[in-house]
Structures are given as structure tokens and as C-alpha cells.
Design a protein around this nucleic acid. Structure first.
Length: 347
RNA sequence: GACAUCGGUGUCCAUAAU
């Protein structure tokens, strides 16, 4: 079960099913836990019908689906944006006598939020509280806060925050990160600082999400030097450095056409043992093209390809644009064909 | 009998550049 679960988590249902079949051959009966894991696997692999079929097959194997089974389905469908399926499963579990719990509601609320349907999400939370004895918790509030922030509705997000605190719930680092992200994307840096201080008051320690969020916020508000300063703090602490932190800064620098600094950071990240990924290459390629340094952009492209990383369609567009404006239409056409062969869709 | 399976936050892109 542990192995099957591992493969399923990675979205490798094939391998999981091989193990599943091997189990039977060795006379080991799959149990509910095995099936629950496979449901996750199918959902991750977007095999929604398979997931539903497995639920039906469980009964014929003499296994009774439990609350986790249903929750995994609700969650799996929600994660993939399959709202209708998710609510269908909710109805089905209710029919079977299960009471949707915090996990069920959280999954559904998140699914609605992901589609921007925050009002319905709030409504569902109310419903659950009234009908199923649901106790709204920190996670649910955080999802709602996050969703409102993403829509730019920071005021509403703040009301939700106040609401949860009034109810005696304790916001955690995730809640604060969501708020910080919302306010900094809106450019309300003073509000960000206020929230950050409140976070510190609660003895919460900034994690890599907090730092990345702060760095991104500073970059997107043109405060590149401050953002670089935060990176220095992080490096001195020697912890919490990952590709995303570097990518964030590299993007900020590239968008401001500070290619030398972006180049330095790229070297620094390699020094820290981190390898660029597509989110590193894309802004760099765009930045160099914009500056007219197509050569440099092209060499990044070939490096990415060597490492089996495919830059996105926009990177190709930038390169094609750059080559054409230098009159090198032949190379541009080559890149155009190349992007087609890589299943990238021209716009 | 114990243990193992379910929910939230960050970067490019997606909402974009020419």
C-alpha cells in the first residue's frame, strides 16, 4: 500500500496498477486503503472515469468505501476543476449515509474558489455550518482569504481574517502568506508590513513562502534593491533557498531589463547548487530578446533544450520576434518549426 | 492492537509580450 500510494501521489498510476495486480497474484487482497490510494492516482492522471469506476468496483471486491474514499474523490475532482463531478460525489456520499466533514467541505470550497466563485464558497461554508455541524477552521478561512486576495478583494479578505480571529481561530503562517501576497500584489506595501508585524507578534516565523511572496511583491512594485536585500538575508541564514526564490528575483530583474544583475543571480543560484528550470529560462529569454541580445537568448534556449527543459511558447515568440527584427527570418522559421514539433501552440 | 490513505499559501506562463 505504501508503494502504491507513493506512485499514485506522483501521478504514476500505471506503476501503481502493476503493483496492484502483483498483489492479487501473490494472494494479497487489496483493501480500502489500496483503493483510496489508486483513486488519488487516477485523479492526478486526470482519469476521472477510471476513478469513478474504481469506486463501483470496490463493492464487487467486497470493500466498503469509507469517508476517505469519498473525500479523495471529491478532492481529486476539485483539484482538477471538475466541479460537477465533485458535487456529484458529495451527493452520492450523503445518499450512502456519510456526513461530509471538514475535508469534504474544504475541497468543495476550494474548487469553487479556484473558479473565482467566492460568493458560492462562502455560502457553502454557511450551509455546512448549519446543516452538517461543520466547524469552520483555519484552513477553510485561509482558502477563502486566499481566493479573495487573488481577486484583488483585499478588504473582504481582511474582513474574513478579522472574522476568524473573532471566532477564536488562530491564523497560521499560511493565512499570513496569503494575505501578504494579496496586499503586496496590490502595491499596498505599508499594509503588508502591518500584517507581517502582526504575524511576528503571534510568534510565527517567516518561511520560504513568506520570503518569496515578499520578494515578489517588492519586485512587482519596482523595489528591486529591497528585494535583493531580502535574498541576502536568506543567503546569510543559509536556509530556505530554492529555485523559486531565485526565479522570482530573476523575473523581476528581467522585467526591468536589468540583465546583468539577472545574469549574476543566475550564477549565484548555480553556486548554491540550484539548477534553472523553465520559470528561470522564460523571463531571461524574454529579457534578452527585449534588449536586442538575441544571441544570449538563443544560447539559453539551447542550454534549456540540452537539459530537456522546454521554454514556453512566449519564449519562442520573443526569439522569433527578435530574429525577425534583425532580418534573420531563416533562423526564425527554424524556431517556428521547432516550437510546433514541441507541441507549443503559436498565438 | 498499533501503524499507513483525505483539505490551505510563493516564481515564469495561463489573465501575457511584440
Amino acid at each position: 500500500n505504501t508503494l502504491i500510494e507513493g506512485y499514485c501521489r506522483k501521478g504514476n498510476v500505471k506503476e501503481a496498477l502493476t503493483l496492484f495486480n502483483a498483489m492479487s497474484r501473490q494472494g494479497l487482497r487489496p483493501d480500502v486503503i489500496t483503493c483510496n490510494a489508486l483513486i488519488t492516482g487516477h485523479c492526478k492522471a486526470k482519469q476521472f472515469e477510471e476513478a469513478k469506476r474504481l469506486l463501483k468496483r470496490m463493492s464487487s471486491m467486497g470493500l466498503a468505501p469509507d469517508l476517505v474514499t469519498f473525500n479523495k474523490l471529491v478532492n481529486g475532482f476539485s483539484e482538477q476543476g471538475m466541479l460537477d463531478y465533485a458535487f456529484q460525489v458529495r451527493d452520492e456520499m450523503v445518499e450512502k449515509g456519510f456526513v461530509p466533514n471538514a475535508v469534504t467541505y474544504t475541497a468543495l470550497i476550494r474548487a469553487l474558489c479556484k473558479k473565482g466563485r467566492t460568493q458560492e464558497a462562502l455560502q457553502l461554508l454557511k450551509e455546512g455550518t448549519a446543516e452538517d455541524g461543520l466547524m469552520p477552521d483555519c484552513v477553510m478561512y485561509t482558502i477563502l482569504i486566499h481566493a479573495h486576495c487573488k481577486k484583488g478583494k483585499t478588504e473582504e479578505a481582511m474582513c474574513l481574517y478579522d472574522d476568524m480571529v473573532e471566532r477564536g481561530l488562530v491564523p497560521d503562517i499560511v493565512t499570513y502568506n496569503a494575505l501578504i501576497n494579496g496586499f503586496s500584489k496590490k502595491g499596498q506595501i505599508d499594509k503588508v508590513k502591518e500584517i507581517f508585524n502582526e504575524m511576528l507578534k503571534r510568534n510565527l516565523v517567516a518561511d520560504r513562502f513568506t520570503y518569496t511572496t515578499l520578494i515578489d511583491g517588492l519586485c512587482k512594485n519596482g523595489k528591486l534593491l529591497e528585494a535583493l536585500g531580502l535574498l541576502d538575508d536568506l543567503r546569510q541564514k543559509g536556509l530556505m533557498l530554492d529555485v523559486v526564490v531565485y526565479n522570482t528575483l530573476i523575473d523581476g530583474l528581467c522585467k526591468n531589463e536589468e540583465m546583468e544583475k539577472a545574469e549574476n543571480l543566475q550564477n549565484l543560484m548555480r553556486k548554491d547548487g540550484l539548477l534553472p528550470d523553465s520559470a528561470t529560462y522564460n523571463p531571461l529569454i524574454a529579457g534578452y530578446c527585449k534588449k536586442g541580445n538575441v544571441q544570449q537568448a538563443l544560447s539559453l534556449l539551447s542550454e534549456a533544450k540540452e537539459r530537456n527543459i522546454v521554454p514556453n511558447a512566449r519564449s519562442y515568440n520573443c526569439l522569433i520576434n527578435g530574429l525577425c527584427s534583425k532580418g534573420n527570418t531563416r533562423e526564425a522559421k527554424k524556431l517556428f518549426d521547432e516550437m510546433l514539433s514541441r507541441d507549443l501552440i503559436p498565438t
